[in-house]
Structures are given as C-alpha cells and as structure tokens.
Write a protein that binds this DNA or RNA. Structure first.
Lengths: 216, 216
DNA sequence: TTGCCAAAGTGATTATTGTCACTGAAATGA
DNA sequence: TCATTTCAGTGACAATAATCACTTTGGCAA
C-alpha cells in the first residue's frame, strides 16, 4: 500500500501540512500480516508507531507469559507506549500484535523528539494519544477491579464488537488469554450468554445478537 | 507555609526560571488537612495540581462507591489526571485525598495550556508526569490482573512502606478499601503475615518487619 | 471507672473461579 | 478419506475470596 498526503489527511485530520510531509518523508512504512507481532515483550522500542491500516492489539504480559488485553489501536491512532518509552528507550512489558493485516508508519524517536517543538500539532497529537490511552487503561482497570468474570466477558464482547463488528472470529482460548482466565471459564460463561439469547456460538466464531439486555 | 523560588527549585529541579516565576505568580497555594478530599468523584477538575508538601492518595471509584487505590503523589509530582482532564474539563471518576497534611499549588487550565508552548520545561514536565503515572497504573493493573489477594497485600504494604515508612497507621478496613476487597479478608491475610514474622500487628498500626522473604 | 464505639478476630457458609481429566466435534492437510 | 490437530463441552473437584453473624479487644470520653 502506498501513502499520499491525502490518505494521511483522512487519518490524521488535525496534523499540519508540514508535519504530514515530514511523516511521509521520514517515516518507514511497515506492513504486518495477521497474527504477527509488532512489539514483543521485553523488546526495546526505538520508534513511534502510527497505525494507518488494520487493527493492532496491545497487551500486557507478566513474567510467566500470562497476558492481558489493554486496548486496541485503530487506524489513525498511535501506541502511547511507543511514545512514552521514547524518552528512555526502556524495555517494555507489553506486546503489540496485528489482529488483521496492518500497515504502520514508524518514525525513530530521535526525530519525533525534535517534532515536539517543531510541529505544534505533533505535540497535540502526542498529548491527545496519552489522554486517550490513559482513559482506556482506566476503564480496563475498572473492569478488572470492580467486575466479576461474567460482566468482564460482556464488556469484552462489546469492545470486540466495536472494533470487529458483530461476527467475531475468535477462539475461547484467545478470549481467556485476553481476560487472563481459563478457557473453561470462558466456555461456560459464553454458553450461558448463548442460552440467554445474547449471542450465537459456532466453532471459531461468535455472533453477537444483543448484549444490551445483559447488565446495566 | 510560604513558597519561594528556592523551595520550588528543590521540588521541580528541571523547570526553567521563568516557569517557576509564573507558577509562583499565577498559582494559588492550597493547604489541606489530613483526610481531606482534594478532588471528589464526579467533580469537574479545572486546575492543574502540583503537590509541594505532604502525601496525596489518588483512587478510582465506581458507581456504587467502591474504591480502588491507583497511586500516591509525593511532593514534586502532579496528578496526570489533573493535566489530562484539562483539555476537556471532563468529569472525573477519581478522588484525591490528603493522607497527611498537604500543600498544593493549583494553576487554572486556561493558563497551563498556554504554558505548553510558552515554556519548554512545562511541556517536558507534563510528558514526564504522563509517563510516570502511566507506568504506575500499569504496575497496579498487573497486580490486579495477575496476582492473588495475598500477593497484592504484600505489594500494597511494600508500597505503603515506600511512602510512609515501616510503621503504618492504617486500619484493616482502609486497606480493604484500597484493594477493593473485604475487611475480613485483609485481617486474615495480615494475621498470616504476622505468623510468618513479616509484620507485627497492633490496633490501628502495622509494623513492617521484613517483607522481602515473602514471594519472589 | 465505666460504658461505649470502632477495630479486629473468628467460624461457618456460599459463591466464584481455577484446575483436571476427560470426550466429542470440527477443520486441516497429506 | 483418513488421520491429526485444534477447539469446544462437561463433570468433578479444589482453591480462593466474599459474606454473614457473631465475639472480643482496646481506646477514648463522660
């Protein structure tokens, strides 16, 4: 896929012209296949990453490999971590994985740091990104801290629906990983949701019928 | 307590002179007593808050009043939320409470927004604050997502020790609130820790003897 | 000093979640 | 098409945490 200023404008409408030019000039375009890792746990991040196409899933991982879904990145958004770790080039305990075929623009930190003062709209973009990720993280934290597994599952399905539509191509095991629980637990709770008519189950697919009646 | 540029310099060593002058000129100094609320849940935040003395506890709250400790703010730090909510003057689902008598400098958002471009070091301070809070939030998230209650309690006590020393003046109920669990659970687990010699219990006080041997 | 109240201790019970050990059912591909 | 692998369903059980219903203790004030 090739990028022009026009396409970039659609994704990042608030950026000034000079910044978009700079992104096209200095950034490298990277395409990743579905399932591929963009950032793996323990890796050093050296570039800012802008998602321009596809969907990227950002997870947290602990020492023994258990993972946990933090949030999704859609086209037009950036990973706050990829901006955060910037300053220190720190090791990250997060991983980023392409959920669908995706296209990313990467810009080395050395450059983006100078952009902070050079382009006002870059700075604004960074701050807006921080804020958005922070809010999403808080919502994720809420659901772990205050909700039980059945509520968390419904919350999860709703979020999935937002990014992938009503027909989810996902296994129970993957859901269990994202929620950091066991597959059997997910299977049982999904079954309950099916019985209540909220979803329809088939192998590797979940069709969301109506989750609104469930909780609040 | 009165503030001079010298005192401010010690707390915020990276700020440029002009910025420190501006803080003293434009900010209002606010003192709060132990236990007082700085920000209560549902309130609109209209100012950036810089902690210059004392200790402030930042918690998340859900609809039915259950709370959850996010992190502590020590002198020289700012609440990321108080910077984040800035742009939108959004309602916050967080509360900030003074753990000890505390002194805060508040600066209205209208001003701090202009500071973003006016003072390079203010911008850097904001970004550094975001990063720090984000990291702390991730660590908090880790402990909820991956750890069981006994591990979380030890983690909690260690964090308390960092901000308040080895003798904690805190009730079991308060710990339970911070961890979003029941008092009985905390009492039982504390008892276990006492039996293992890691802590000593007395009414309204917990003395930390050695938590290093416990876990990892 | 006594009486009260908040804090802490405790046993019993329930609910939720995690684990184990399977079986069966679809997809894949050789 | 058959064989292998992956995914899903399920019952039994264990472990953890939450809830309930108390009792006990210590600190403080009248």
């Amino acid at each position: 896929m090739e990028f022009t200023v026009t396409k970039l404008s659609a994704l990042f409408p608030d950026m000034e012209q000079a910044l978009k030019d700079a992104i096209l000039k200095e950034g490298s375009i990277k395409t990743v296949k579905e399932g591929e890792l963009l950032v793996s746990s323990g890796q050093y991040i050296k570039s800012a990453m802008l998602v321009v196409d596809g969907l990227v899933k950002v997870s947290r991982e602990d020492e023994d490999g258990k993972e946990f879904l933090m949030y999704y990145l859609e086209p037009g958004s950036a990973c706050a971590l990829s901006l955060l770790c910037a300053a220190r080039s720190e090791k990250s305990a997060i991983s980023a994985k392409a959920v669908s075929n995706a296209t990313i623009i990467t810009v080395p930190f050395v450059l983006t740091e100078t952009w902070q003062t050079k382009y006002r709209t870059w700075h604004e973009f960074v701050v807006a990104t921080y804020r958005k990720r922070f809010e999403e993280l808080l919502i994720t934290l809420d659901s772990v801290a205050f909700k039980s597994m059945d509520e968390r599952l419904v919350f999860y399905l709703k979020r999935q629906m937002k990014v992938s539509g009503k027909l989810l191509a996902i296994s129970h095991q993957e859901i269990a990983n994202d929620l950091s629980t066991a597959r059997e637990v997910v299977s049982r709770l999904l079954k309950k949701l099916e019985q209540s008519g909220a979803i329809a189950l088939s192998r590797n697919h979940i069709e969301i019928i109506n989750l609104d009646k469930i909780f609040d």
